[in-house]
Amino acid sequence: MAEGMVGASRSGQWVAHFLLVIGVIVVAFPIYYVTIASTHPIQTILRPPLPLLPGDAGLANYAEAIGGGVGRIGGVGVGRLLWNTTLVAVSVAVGKIVISIASAYAIVFFRFPLRMVFFWLIFITLMLPVEVRILPTYKVMVDLRLIDTYAGLILPLIASATATLLFRQFFMTIPNELLEAARVDGAGPWRFFRDILLPLSATNIAALFVITFIYGWTQYLWPLLVTNSNSMNTIIIALRKMISFADADTPWNLVMVTCVFAILPPILVVVLMQRWFVKGLVETEK
């Protein structure tokens, strides 16, 4: 009986590992394919099937893309695109966290008129799709003359009802005894927030940073509307501009290089912050 259970358990593990390997291959192969394609000249890419081993044009392709040879977007280099996208992603992530943690702190620990009304107004925005809000937001950006500016790219994206809700739920789990102890110790609102709430919220902040960074990095619709200048494009918008309806007009070698640069930062953020990310999600659910 025991041997049968052990055998069943081992076979289940083999099946689970096999399915996991298949899943990894399915997810990782497109990334590998793009990376390999970025090392081949455009003539090789246009003649399928593409070799699955690196080519000899990698250095030339990457040097051309970084040096400003990215076609169809005014010769803007990948370095400029990465700077724009990184600035937007980091600013959106930090802005969302700062505004959300401050609003959740005010809702949970302060008593003021219409406190819950404001919370539910924030929460209701979750039900409004982006398409409903995007035209009024664009009109505001035009009136404020923020088109083609970093402020116009960043400010409309930094409010987050989801992050506010998560911080509120976490703050509500903090025992009242901790708040009373801080008051007895003479800690004011700012000291309580800085010395107690922020350290306790570290893993939640890390998890939200990963999520909101990727959200800001992969934005397409809003940067497409609010930018006209090629030098203000994010890397996602640049990729779309580089691709033509005719394969012969598309610099596929440079498109592949730009894809590699677009993929790497989110992957690095997830890998480097994986432990904090998982821990933050688990503690948030608790």
Rank of each mutant, 00 (worst) to 15 (best):
Q274H: 14
A104H: 01
I101A: 11
E64C: 04
M232I: 03
L20H: 10
P51H: 13
P223H: 11
G12Q: 09
L155Q: 01
A262W: 03
A161C: 13
S160Y: 00
D195K: 11
L166D: 03
L126Q: 10
E285N: 15
H17L: 15
W120E: 11
G55Q: 01
F119R: 00
V78W: 00
A2W: 06
G280M: 04
I263P: 00
R168L: 07
A262M: 00
I174G: 07
Y33W: 13
I237G: 00
P266I: 03
V257M: 04
G280V: 02
V98P: 03
S9A: 15
I236W: 07
A60E: 13
G186C: 02
I158S: 05
T164V: 12
G23D: 11
A262N: 09
M5D: 10
L146P: 05
G186T: 03
P156F: 08
K286H: 09
I42E: 13
V184Y: 08
T164I: 09
T125S: 09
I124A: 08
V255P: 09
G7V: 07
I66R: 06
I101G: 03
G74E: 07
M141F: 08
F171S: 04
G74S: 11
P51T: 13
Q43G: 04
P41E: 05
Y33D: 07
I154L: 08
P156V: 11
V255G: 10
R111F: 08
G67M: 01
R168A: 00
L135W: 08
V257R: 03
I45Q: 01
A248I: 13
